[in-house]
Computed example of a mutant assay.
Amino acid sequence: MNLSPKQRIELHGFNNLTKSLSFNMYDICFTKTKEEREAYLEYIDEQYNADRLTKILKHVSEIIGAHVLNVASQDFVPQGASVTLLVSEGPVEGVPDESFEESPGPLPESVVMQLDKSHITVHTYPEYHPDEGISTFRADIDVSTCGEISPLKALNYLIRSFDTDIMTIDYRVRGFTRDKNGHKLFIDHEISSIQNYIPDDIIELFDMIDVNVYQENIFHTKCKLREFDLNNYLFGYTKEKLHPDEVEEITERLKLEMDEIFYGKNIV
């Protein structure tokens, strides 16, 4: 199927293709003592509590033009939070010309698109290594839409809403819809890479790897920050207060942690 960016498909009934975006971000920190670890986890819990996460997801619903039907949110003890938005078709004021265009989505200023039977969720997972001084924070976000727009249009805003060292992004189109002649369509837009939905200024910051299964409409992109500044990974002090040997050791630990998360395996 070859579609120009502004070409429309005449469908038989509602477009019931399900488009799912799963976005995982990781923040990594070196916490030398128990007190530092507790302070970092407290900071993360405050920075990404259920109230703030709810605001982020509501902005996502604005971007994709969804109407929020229900919000369920919870802050957990000792840490972590979850928010789920059930959304449906929002106000429709025509269809944007860029519906099928591979380009970064907007920040939350637009309201248009047709959606139904959709949801947006986020779950956070602060955790720490038992004895090596590494603390991590993971946020899992899922945007699942049924309709014409791809949830990838929310990716630009989501990336800018979190401070992240590593991202893994999955996008998949499920099910099928029919054109006016009854012919099945298993995807209604062209996509070559998730990277085409990420702004250039963000792409410049990350090393990226694509793993795509085009025949199954499955797309996967992994991202890791290119530049490493140890001061960005210390909590409450800077590397100038450390002995050079400590700087080297902590740097090696952090880089190993990042590589293991990025490649999805333990590295001996």
Rank of each mutant, 00 (worst) to 15 (best):
residue 137 F to G: 06
residue 60 V to T: 14
residue 17 L to C: 12
residue 202 I to V: 15
residue 93 E to H: 14
residue 247 V to K: 12
residue 200 D to R: 14
residue 98 E to H: 09
residue 87 V to S: 01
residue 201 D to C: 05
residue 161 S to R: 09
residue 136 T to D: 04
residue 157 Y to Q: 13
residue 100 F to D: 13
residue 216 E to L: 12
residue 190 E to F: 00
residue 147 G to Q: 10
residue 142 D to T: 15
residue 18 T to G: 01
residue 219 F to Q: 08
residue 244 P to V: 07
residue 179 D to K: 00
residue 261 I to Y: 07
residue 84 T to R: 14
residue 227 E to K: 15
residue 201 D to A: 05
residue 188 D to F: 04
residue 19 K to A: 03
residue 171 Y to D: 04
residue 9 I to N: 04
residue 86 L to Y: 13
residue 204 E to L: 03
residue 16 N to S: 11
residue 17 L to M: 02
residue 64 I to G: 02
residue 3 L to C: 04
residue 148 E to H: 06
residue 255 K to L: 14
residue 23 F to A: 01
residue 168 T to Y: 02
residue 224 K to F: 04
residue 120 I to Q: 05
residue 140 D to G: 08
residue 46 E to Y: 12
residue 145 T to M: 09
residue 151 P to F: 07
residue 92 V to P: 00
residue 267 I to Y: 11
residue 132 E to Q: 11
residue 33 T to V: 04
residue 123 H to I: 09
residue 244 P to D: 03
residue 165 D to H: 13
residue 206 F to K: 01
residue 191 I to A: 04
residue 214 Y to Q: 08
residue 237 Y to T: 14
residue 109 E to D: 12
residue 211 V to N: 15
residue 28 I to H: 12
residue 171 Y to Q: 05
residue 123 H to D: 11
residue 24 N to L: 09
residue 254 L to T: 13
residue 88 S to E: 14
residue 189 H to R: 15
residue 210 D to L: 04
residue 180 K to V: 12
residue 132 E to H: 15
residue 239 K to C: 08
residue 163 D to V: 11
residue 260 E to F: 10
residue 69 L to N: 13
residue 57 L to V: 08
residue 185 L to G: 07
residue 160 R to N: 10
residue 80 G to H: 08
residue 230 L to W: 07
residue 77 V to A: 09
residue 84 T to N: 12
residue 21 L to G: 07
residue 203 I to G: 03
residue 172 R to I: 15
residue 92 V to D: 02
residue 164 T to C: 02
residue 13 G to N: 09
residue 7 Q to L: 06
residue 154 A to V: 03
residue 157 Y to L: 00
residue 49 N to Y: 09
residue 138 R to L: 01
residue 185 L to C: 01
residue 137 F to C: 05
residue 8 R to Y: 10
residue 217 N to Q: 11
residue 237 Y to E: 07
residue 33 T to L: 06
residue 83 V to L: 02
residue 262 F to W: 12
residue 267 I to F: 11
residue 135 S to M: 03
residue 158 L to I: 15
residue 105 G to K: 03
residue 84 T to F: 02
residue 8 R to C: 02
residue 245 D to P: 00
residue 152 L to E: 11
residue 105 G to H: 11
residue 69 L to Q: 11
residue 205 L to H: 05
residue 231 N to Y: 07
residue 19 K to D: 06
residue 208 M to S: 14
residue 48 Y to V: 03
residue 9 I to D: 01
residue 191 I to L: 11
residue 100 F to V: 06
residue 126 P to S: 06
residue 74 Q to Y: 10
residue 5 P to K: 10
residue 199 P to K: 10
residue 203 I to R: 14
residue 2 N to D: 09
residue 152 L to Y: 11
residue 20 S to K: 15
residue 73 S to R: 14
residue 250 I to V: 13
residue 207 D to I: 07
residue 26 Y to I: 05
residue 27 D to N: 13
residue 20 S to G: 06
residue 222 K to N: 06
residue 248 E to D: 12
residue 16 N to T: 13
